[in-house]
Amino acid sequence: MTTTIERIQIVEIAETVCESLLEMTLHDVENLAAAAALDGHSATATVHISGATNVSVVLSGSAVIARRAAAAMFEMDEADLGDEEIADAFGEIANIVAGNIKSLLPEPSQLSLPAVSQGADLIVTIPGADLLEHVDLGCFGDLLSVALWSRDGADGTGQD
């Protein structure tokens, strides 16, 4: 099945989620310089949407973003946060973004639990998937990116 979702819809969802959870405004930063700065990502959260449409939502951000987001959501000092709190908060942001994206896609489908990775130079690979859209947003003076990957393949079977 063809997946049609507009870049602006992803931006609006990410903005709404971050304004609500982090009480901050994101900025769309669609330019090459910004994309080049994504090399230092150290947190990613992936949520799979599976069913009538098969899409993976990958949220990526720097360690600074992940820590600041967790501090805002837990209402804790950044210094008091552990990896578990950061992973929980970053995964929950991805879960809410993916849930809202799922609402724009054909039903029925199911949402996976978020899988979160933290570390240096992380690379997320989803075998056989095609990049549908990639949005970079300014967040806490750094970059937060949302990527949508289609797992439906050329034959539309949705088989990975």
Partner: peptide
Amino acid sequence: SEGSPEMRAKAESAGALFLVAKP
């Protein structure tokens, strides 16, 4: 996080009183 009409209908038919979507 899932507030589609289909999810709301499924929730209601199972006996839920409401569905609040995140955020």
